[in-house]
Design a protein around this nucleic acid. Structure first.
Length: 834
RNA sequence: GCGGGCGUGGUGGAAUUGGUAGACACGCUGGCCUUAGGAGCCAGUGGGCUUUUGCCCAUGGGGGUUCGAGUCCCUCCGCCCGCACCA
């Protein structure tokens, strides 16, 4: 028998060629007659940003997604499993600024590299639907969606205090500001007043929150979204500045403490601050304070231990519940972005207001009774500030003595009757700022006409194609502004001279609908056909990193809901189920070039093959958890695949390919005996185990089960009939195929002459899972004392007797009285003795 | 501060509803084979005691519920993630 060697470099390209030539993983949109909607499945990994080469995180994401796609296919589904590229965005543009190479070129070479490697990984992609979001045939429809949202009033333009990154010279979304710094470059973010485009995502806050209940997402992701939406119930209450005759509504979650309001605070960004102090002695001091607060970074301003600061405005407002005149202040602890940018301050029952009142010697009034003075640390002798529940005091006779929660409702009703306020709900979520003063993005399809003003580009004129330019560097305005020939255009309404919008869209817009386009990627007439969406959407299983738990996943949900409202689709949630894979680290640290701990998938694939790389990354631990890369671990998995392939090749040589092995047609259990029966049973155990593990993403334990099966095949190889051995190995290959498609295709063909991906997923025979005998655990007082063989159909009395006869049980019950017997058939007997 | 998660051998990790703790793998030790081994095969491997049978201890610490707890409850410690002056 010739020495056979497992050679992934030969095996893998051979099978990849078969799949490419036969277009094996392509699916048609034509409905299959009589096909139930449950017979199709849409498996999708978050689309990659093509920068350089794929990294190990991509390998993990696609190893997970491909395993699920294969499992769905072989359990009777027609599976859509597409691929594309999120190709607009800053990295390519920054590269262009540095090197002068057009982003289109650098992105094209990155995409080529991703394509090459994805093919070398053997992932089962329907390549006929591939696209990049930077292609005009795609972003034409991004622009179309923008116009649809614009027509519906969901896209709008306004001047706003926006977050500005001085390094990238662009506006950022709130979501892209991390600890007051730019998410991308880490520069400290500034605030600027600019005209910007927004999407009205806040209109959807309630639905984005409520519909989380109906989707199969990890609980922590839902929690993050809930926190981000930040729903608060309370009341809007109007405080009037009599001197200027202006009403100032404020939002409060604690209307029960209204009688304790002793001052009033506005955010430095509040547009009325200047007006309130104009011509007063305070004017200069307020102006200085505001300027200082505005130039301060978010991080400095938000720092918790920073002492409270502010300046009096020299004005008062009327507290609507008691008519008191309370002084107005401007202070940077009040945020313009939340509520109305102004607050009523209740120092007795709010820690921040308390700190401010102490710093500026303002009155502090208790209006809710708390437990008798226990405050030994921060608070004062009366136990203030007190934020807990209690009875109202110092309020109004009809509210005093009421529990504060009850009083809250009563006070809101009373305010409502008096026209001084009303119940209100506030959200932390803010509208999505999508303008970017950048070149490499989707142009916003809007023109500005001298006569007609702002005009949307008519849909039939789309796409507004991104022009080529020379200088990519931002200078505080979009680089597109320099493309004069492009900017100067005609007004679609009057035909007069007009100028194009020169900002581009946030790249998160591009990725908020790509999953819809895959359903109908070659449609030139529309973004999609309703039939195509009906065929595939919503996505049955979405896979990606937790880093997108808020941004991308919230935006995609918003787009889906908005498009549903516009009649463009008929479902409310884009991703029915979500799986978030954990990070791959090296030596416990995130891989990065600067740390020099990067493991490149290409080098692993070159050395061990894609099957080893994919299996290892799934075997190392539960896929939703972080995993640390270990070179020794890779070796171990490679040894396993080598052993599997070698034993299969040897076994195949002992007899020709036998289609029966694929079916496992062994007839009755009784026809088998001894080791043959034991191995067939082991194979069925593995089928059961792997099938169950696939459903719960337990890929590490699924692979371990196949390892056990192989170990048994290997251990008993001399004793087993060649048919049994062939069945065991073919089963192993069939079960491992979703993780190691090349080597398993090879093995399966050697053993059976058939193509494993065309075979239905194996079914465990219940009769094979049952055993005649099992090992009965015998316990005394809950401690394991012996094990005996018990017949599977033995009754409780029989099991008890077996246990009582077990030698080591006898030594432990000798001379003692049995007071209780617990019998768990199929498992154990526990004797309680005294 | 609030919210979520986690803590098991030398290592990564197993342990469906409370029922044999440590599957599978890495590493290590010994052996076989070999001119050679960073190949392959076999055996061993939580700690302690014991000649073996076996006994005791052990899932971050402490307490509880239970015939029985890695799993449930309370409490403390440690680590990770998200949000964070959101009124």
């Amino acid at each position: 028998m010739a020495e056979r060697r497992y050679d992934p470099q030969e095996i893998e390209p051979r099978w990849q060629a078969v799949w490419a030539e036969e277009h094996t993983w392509e699916v048609s949109n034509d409905p299959v007659p009589g096909e139930a909607s449950s017979a199709t499945s849409y498996v999708l990994e978050m689309l990659p940003y093509p920068s350089g080469e794929p990294h190990i995180g991509h390998l993990k994401k696609y190893a997970v997604g491909d395993a699920i796609a294969h499992f769905h296919r072989r359990t009777g589904h027609r599976v859509l499993h597409p691929m594309g590229y999120d190709a607009f965005g800053l990295p390519a543009e920054n590269h262009a600024i540095k090197t002068g190479v057009h982003p289109r070129e650098s992105i094209a070479s990155s995409i080529a590299s991703f394509q090459r490697q994805f093919r070398s990984w053997g992932i089962s992609i329907d390549w006929s639907r591939e696209f990049g979001t930077h292609e005009p045939s795609y972003y034409r429809w991004t622009q179309w969606i923008f116009l649809e949202l614009y027509k519906a009033g969901l896209a709008y333009r306004r001047e706003a205090a926006v977050k500005w990154c001085p390094h990238d010279q662009t506006v950022l979304a709130n979501e892209q500001v991390i600890d007051g710094c730019c998410e991308r470059c880490g520069a400290v973010v500034e605030v600027k007043q600019l005209e910007q485009w927004f999407f009205r995502i806040t209109d959807y806050a309630e639905r984005l929150l409520g519909d989380l209940d109906g989707i199969a997402w990890p609980e922590h992701v839902k929690t993050m979204q809930r926190n981000w939406i930040g729903r608060s119930e309370g009341a809007e209450v109007t405080f009037r500045c009599e001197q200027l005759g202006i009403d100032y509504p404020v939002f409060t979650t604690r209307p029960d403490t209204l009688f304790g309001a002793t001052f009033f605070v506005m955010a430095p960004e509040h547009p009325d601050v200047g007006r309130l102090v104009a011509g007063t002695p305070q004017e200069q001091a307020v102006r200085d304070y505001v300027n200082q607060a505005l130039t301060e970074s978010g991080a400095e301003r938000g720092s918790l231990d920073k002492p409270k600061t502010g300046v009096a405005l020299g004005r008062t407002v009327t507290n609507p519940v008691n008519g008191e005149q309370i002084p107005m202040y401007v202070a940077d602890y009040v945020l313009m972005e939340y509520g109305t940018g102004a607050i009523m301050a209740v120092p007795g029952h709010d820690e921040r207001d308390y700190a401010f009142a102490r710093a500026y010697s303002l009155p502090i009034r208790r209006v809710i009774e708390g437990p008798p003075t226990l405050s030994e640390d921060g608070g004062d002798a009366q136990g203030l500030p007190y934020t807990g529940d209690g009875l109202l005091v110092n309020s109004r006779p009809d509210f005093d003595g009421m529990g504060n929660r009850e009083a809250l409702r009563a006070i809101v009703q009373w305010l409502d009757r008096e026209g001084k306020g009303h119940a209100s709900v506030n959200y932390r979520l803010r509208d999505w700022l999508i303008s970017r003063q950048r070149y490499w993005g989707c142009p916003i399809p809007i023109v500005y006409c001298e006569h007609c003003g702002l005009q949307p580009v008519p849909a039939e004129q789309l796409p507004v194609v991104l022009p080529d330019i020379e200088d990519y560097a931002p200078h505080g305005r979009s680089p597109l502004a320099a493309a004069e020939d492009w900017v100067a255009t005609e007004c679609p309404s009057c035909g007069g001279p007009a100028r194009r919008e020169t900002d581009t869209m946030d790249t998160f817009v591009d990725s908020s609908w790509y999953f819809l386009r895959y359903c109908d990627a070659r449609n030139d007439e529309a973004a999609w056909s309703p039939e195509a969406l009906r065929q595939w959407m919503p996505v049955d299983q979405y896979i990606g990193g937790v880093e997108h738990a808020i941004l991308h996943l919230m935006y995609a949900r918003f787009f889906t809901k908005a498009l549903a409202d516009l009649g463009q689709l008929d479902f409310q949630e884009p991703f029915s189920a979500l799986f978030t894979q954990g990070m791959v680290t090296k030596d416990g640290a995130k891989m990065s070039k600067s740390k020099g701990n990067v493991v490149s998938p290409a080098s692993i694939v070159e050395r061990y093959g894609a099957d080893t790389a994919r299996c290892y990354i799934l075997f190392v631990g539960p896929p939703d958890q972080d995993a640390d890369w270990s070179d020794e671990g890779v070796e171990g998995v490679h040894r396993f695949l080598s052993r599997l392939w070698r034993l299969a090749a040897e076994t195949a040589e002992r007899g020709g390919a036998d289609p029966l092995a694929s079916v496992g047609a062994f007839g009755e259990v009784g026809a088998l005996q001894g080791d043959d029966l034991e191995l067939v049973r082991k194979a069925h155990w593995a089928i059961e185990k792997v099938s169950e593990d696939m459903r719960r993403f337990g890929f590490n334990t699924a692979i371990a089960a196949v390892m056990e099966l192989l170990n048994d095949c290997s251990r008993m190889r001399e004793q087993l009939s060649v048919e049994t051995l062939r069945f065991g190995l073919a089963t192993a290959a069939s079960l491992l195929f979703p993780f190691a498609p090349h080597v398993c295709s090879d093995i399966y063909e050697l053993l059976t002459g058939e193509r494993v991906w065309e075979q239905p997923w194996p079914q465990a025979d219940p009769e094979m899972l049952e055993r005649d005998e099992y090992e009965l655990v015998c316990q005394v007082n809950g401690k394991l004392r012996d094990r005996v063989q018990a017949s599977s159909d033995a009754g409780e009395e029989e099991l008890k007797a077996l246990c009582l006869a077990a030698p080591n049980v006898l030594t432990h019950i000798e001379g003692r009285e049995i007071v209780k017997e617990i019998v768990v058939p199929g498992r154990l007997v526990n004797l309680v003795v005294r």
